[in-house]
């Protein structure tokens, strides 16, 4: 990595001030993406502001809402008895991220702020119609994701927590990239009284997206059969050595079907 200054403020205001004051500053959450990027010299920050002392950890579960502090790790989410009970699909998703070492360091806030097009959480946030709370405002999921590695966050804006409405039923299924184990296609299906939302990660060139054709069909009839004749178009989907766009399009159907079956089980 390149040399940089390191700060570890103990208040949110100080952290935000520090990020604002320094051009090319970067926030460090769990570092599971950022530190490898630094080590490969793909990023040259002037200051790295470590968020570890900001008290942004914590899980609050009510019958209608799950709220998770931005610095809560995937491991804590995966092992939370409250989340396992109230929103098991989210705990299950967290348990499938990386390996134990990654899950013990990586954070939900860090992952969402990074908006890697192959990350898992964006699909949960979008399908559950969650809300991001930052140091200055709240942002709805629909408005938050703005294409791969791009979000609505302003310079120096920090996610403090994320809240998810509790659905009637939900499930996440993931077909892993064989090498990286990121989502090659990840599907989060959430059934609410108002209808079904389906969010797909890993597949599209523009990051996480809602599959409206599936949503209409599943809102009308929440069963695997409901989507069996819907063909997902391949255009706009990623194509790489592991999966062509048509293969990803096919997997979206398969993994959605499996998510519906799992949600119903």
């Amino acid at each position: 990595m390149y040399d940089f200054a390191y700060e570890k403020p103990s208040s949110l205001a100080d952290a935000v001030a520090s990020l604002k004051a320094n051009l090319d500053s970067k926030a460090l959450a769990g570092g599971q993406t950022f530190i490898p990027v630094l080590k490969q010299r793909l990023n040259k920050p002037s200051v790295v502001v470590d968020l570890a002392k900001l008290n942004l950890k914590g899980i609050t579960v009510t019958p209608t809402t799950v709220t998770i502090g931005a610095m809560t790790t995937h491991g804590e989410i995966a092992l939370s008895a409250d989340i396992q009970k109230t929103l098991p699909a989210l705990a299950h998703m967290a348990s499938m991220i990386g390996d134990w070492q990654v899950r013990h360091r990586g954070t939900m806030g860090g992952s969402l702020a990074n908006n890697d097009p192959s990350a898992c959480y964006p699909s949960a946030l979008l399908a559950l119609d969650g809300t991001i709370t930052t140091d200055r405002r709240t942002i709805k999921a629909e408005d938050f994701f703005q294409g791969m590695f791009t979000t609505a966050l302003e310079d120096g804006e920090l996610i403090t927590s994320v809240s998810f409405p509790v659905p009637e039923k939900a499930a996440y299924t993931k077909f892993r990239n064989p090498a990286s184990r990121y989502a090659m296609v990840g599907v989060f299906v959430a059934k609410f009284a108002a209808g079904v939302r389906v969010a797909i990660t890993g597949a599209s060139q523009s990051g996480v997206f809602r599959h409206t054709a599936f949503e209409h069909a599943l809102s009308a009839h929440f069963a695997a059969d409901a989507i069996k004749d819907i063909v997902t178009p391949a255009n706009g989907l990623n194509s790489d050595i592991h999966a062509s766009a048509p293969y990803r399009a096919h997997l979206i159907g398969v993994m959605t079907k499996r998510a519906v079956i799992e949600a119903l089980s």
């Binding site: 090498a179 990286s180 790489d240 050595i241 592991h242």
Partner: peptide
């Protein structure tokens, strides 16, 4: 193309 473990599957 497969110059790291992100793309080379051990």
């Amino acid at each position: 193309v497969s110059a790291s473990f992100m793309d080379y599957q051990m």
